[in-house]
């Protein structure tokens, strides 16, 4: 199916433009966002700084000086950028669905690494093992990276293990913690405060500032969680030290 990309372009201050490609958190919208992001990477304009894809939008950051120089000051920078992006929207079609890259994340569920596993089970009338089975049995689409370096917003959590945020947020959540908040699941790439229910922890490093890209996960990846034992977790940590 090839559909023309529809989108609306608005100014976001004088150094950015917001392109909206849908209104809900849906896979179809995700694919439009991805297609537009790729199109812009293939057809950048002079003065483009970077673009930040999110659930329904792509925000395009630019340098007004370079844009103005490139169009010989004939247009305002905003209008020049908007025209370029409008052209991309009109001439581009939905990208072919390519097989997504799958990233497996080993998780040690429960115990000290997942102090809220039993609570999540109790809230859903399940046993802890059932929660693990459901969580590790799912496939999760990385919609976007944001909030913190390398933090993935994942779609695809089963309703059966959804759980509200903790009433009392923790002041310190260990790096690598895997949590649930409402209909979302995610992995904390760095130590932060937070209110998610923690069901496990991965020894994998999600954010690696010495690498490019610095984030292990990227929008469009498929994530699968694989249960590991506490001993495997310890061995993994030992190895990466």
């Amino acid at each position: 199916m090839s559909e023309v990309l529809a989108g609306s372009i608005t100014a976001f201050g004088e150094c950015a433009v917001r392109v909206e490609l849908g209104t809900g958190i849906e896979e179809s919208v995700f694919h439009r966002v991805a297609a537009f992001t790729e199109a812009l990477q293939a057809h950048p304009f002079a003065g483009l700084i970077e673009s930040v894809p999110a659930f329904t939008t792509v925000t395009v950051f630019y340098d007004p000086v370079r844009v103005a120089e490139a169009c010989f000051f004939k247009k305002t920078p905003y209008h020049a950028v908007a025209a370029h992006l409008q052209h991309l929207l009109q001439t581009l079609q939905q990208a072919e669905h390519r097989p997504a890259e799958t990233v497996e994340i080993p998780v040690c569920y429960g115990g000290a690494h997942g102090p809220d596993l039993e609570e999540v089970a109790r809230l859903n009338g399940l046993t802890p093992d059932e929660v693990i089975e459901i969580h590790a049995g799912g496939e999760y689409l990385v919609y976007m990276i944001g909030f913190a370096p390398g933090f993935p917003y994942l779609g695809g959590l089963s309703d059966r293990i959804a759980a509200p945020r903790r009433a009392e947020p923790r002041l310190r959540i260990p790096v690598g913690s895997v949590g649930i908040a409402g209909q979302q699941t995610g992995v904390y790439p760095m130590e932060t405060p937070g209110g998610w229910q923690l069901i496990g922890r991965t020894p994998l490093t999600l954010f690696r500032p010495d690498r490019n890209p610095p984030s292990l996960l990227q929008a469009g990846h498929i994530v699968r969680f694989r249960p590991i034992t506490e001993r495997e977790f310890a061995a993994w940590e030992e190895e990466s030290r």
Partner: peptide
Amino acid sequence: RYGFQRYGVM
């Protein structure tokens, strides 16, 4: 630090 905001890097 520009160019890495799509990876969540502020």
